[in-house]
Design a protein around this nucleic acid. Structure first.
Length: 483
RNA sequence: GGUCCCAUCGUCUAGUGGCCUAGGACAUCACCCUCUCAAGGUGGAGGCACGGGUUCGAAUCCCGUUGGGACUGCCA
């Protein structure tokens, strides 16, 4: 038996939604589990009002970033108009459709207290001819039940009477989603339709269309298997909204999430690998993934957990890999790709690649995202120090002892061996002379040199920063405190 | 309102009738480590929505209630 043929079918109407990313990923898993599985990308751009070409580029680059490679496509619905016309003609010829000239207001007005869902079938038997304002509706069976065999949820039954006569083609002639989608799935011989749960109620309509097309076209294309994935929700338990929630996959890339970590986290939303370990190699994810094991309930997209996971991935990088991965954030000028709206706090001239290579290991284990790096190493590359005023006041400005310590440090550091361990020893001694434990003694120095009270290990940092720059900053801080 | 889906710690989940004194992860708290911050280590607190059944036995099966969500477009 041939391998599965699955498709990811986004519409390019905005940033690449993390929920879409997960749908794409699960489809891709299914394809990659088989040697002959096929993963197809179909751009559903039939809504010309809302589509924009830049969003198509966004989808492509985000999928590339995630490593979701295609076997076929990208196809575009805008290229398939002829096939849609064929579907419409066949359906119409087979008596499955009728013209309707009702406006939305007409339908709403008639609806009133009527319990019938959606459209009431007003034009179904009026025998209207095609006109400038007539849409084409599908004659839904009035009796019987349509059962959607869902791989995740089991059989889901819909009474046909509850499904209204939906529009298949607009009065303009443009074919709508339901028919376009079904036509393409048939032509692409899709075996598994794997998509978000918001499409579950579309499934019976699409099955009706599918079978009507088989009949009208005298074909016998097998229905696909359906799998409706649980929704991704926000803290309010609402479907993640493009408008209100941080759902743009691109923004996570810009923040410095590694694609491996992002994929790993996404895989955990609605599914889980065997065993207690959640950090799982991609190959294992692919091997273990089963649609049947996908959970039924919505999942909250927890950025905190993803950040933690990303930190683990970052820490597991070799120093060389870390250097390469972090380059776009610290040295965008010589990177092929750079994150948008994220300038490091220094200029190209100020950046010192060799120095960064030595600094990098100090921050690798302290960041959860690559985007956090610049703030942590900025003091190495900028000329002056940008002070956190609260920290400065606490450790130097309002602390005479801190000022004394700085003054002593200037003396002592002038002729100490410029190595981390020697600086460490010297600082201990300076502190002891003033009755300060090392944790207290290092604070004013740290603040004077880096501008804040938190950061990479101090003595290694001083060694890398160099004697001259360190002494200069200690003197500057001292001068600053007496102003 | 109608149709459909869902319901295990705050969150993501394991669990498919006895292995459950309900396991793991994130978050949280305490302690350890420690030049700061992280990381790491150890430990703690924290959950089967409720009510009926079925069964020798129910987180697991059935029914109901409650609660949440999706859809309900000449959008996808």
């Amino acid at each position: 038996m041939a391998g599965p043929r699955v498709r990811f079918a986004p519409s390019p109407t905005g940033y690449f939604h993390v929920g879409s990313a997960r749908s794409a990923l699960f489809n891709w898993f299914v394809a990659r589990q088989h040697d002959d599985g096929v993963f197809i990308l179909r751009i559903e751009d039939t809504d010309t009002e809302r589509n924009r070409e830049e969003w198509v580029d966004g989808i492509l680059s985000a999928m590339d970033w995630l490593g979701l490679d295609l076997d076929e496509g990208p196809f575009r619905q805008s290229d398939n108009q002829a096939q849609y016309a064929t579907s419409v003609a066949a359906l119409n010829g087979g008596g499955y459709l009728y013209y309707c000239d009702c406006t939305g207001d007409d339908v709403a007005k008639r609806k009133g207290d009527n319990k019938t869902p959606g459209y009431d079938g007003f034009c179904r038997d009026r025998g209207l001819d095609q006109g400038p304002l007539t849409a084409l509706r599908f004659k839904t069976p009035r009796e019987g039940v349509t059962t959607v065999p869902d791989l995740i949820r089991g059989d889901v039954e819909f009474a046909n009477a509850t499904i209204d006569d939906f529009v298949v083609a607009k009065s303009s002639g443009a074919v709508l989603y339901a028919l376009a989608n079904v036509t393409d799935d048939r032509n692409d011989r899709i075996s598994h339709v794997i998509r978000g749960e918001e499409h579950l109620s579309n499934a019976p309509k699409q099955m009706m269309l599918w079978e009507a097309l088989n009949d009208a076209l005298h074909e016998d294309v097998a229905l696909p298997a359906y799998a409706h994935l649980p929704l991704l929700v926000n803290e309010q338990r609402k479907k993640l909204s493009k408008r209100k929630d941080p759902v743009a996959t691109e923004s996570y890339r810009d923040q410095g999430y590694l694609p491996e970590a992002f994929v790993n986290y996404l895989a955990l939303l609605g599914w889980s690998p065997r065993g207690d370990e959640e950090i799982v190699p991609l190959a294992t994810l692919i091997e273990q993934f089963r649609l049947e094991d996908v959970s039924h309930s919505p999942a909250f997209f927890d950025v905190k957990k993803m950040a933690h996971m990303n930190g683990e991935y970052i820490r597991s990088l070799t120093p060389e890999e870390f250097l390469a991965q972090s380059a776009p954030w610290v040295n965008p000028w010589s990177s092929a790709w750079r994150p948008t709206d994220r300038e490091p706090g220094w200029s190209e001239d100020q950046f010192d690649e060799a120095l960064y290579a030595k600094v990098a290991p100090l921050v690798q284990e302290r960041v959860a995202t690559l985007g956090e790096i610049p703030a942590m190493v900025g003091f190495f590359f900028s000329d002056g120090v940008s002070y956190d005023e609260t920290a400065f006041a606490k450790s130097v400005g309002n602390d005479p002892l801190g000022q004394t310590l700085l003054a002593v440090a200037v003396e002592r550091f002038s002729d100490v061996d410029w190595r981390a361990d020697a600086l460490h020893e010297a600082t201990i001694e300076i502190g002891e002379a003033l009755g300060l434990a090392l944790r207290k003694a290092q604070a004013p120095i740290r603040c004077a040199v880096t501008g804040t009270l938190v950061g990479p290990p101090l003595f290694e940092s001083l060694e890398l920063l160099g004697r001259e720059r360190t002494l200069q900053r200690l003197r500057d801080a001292l001068a600053r405190s007496s102003q």
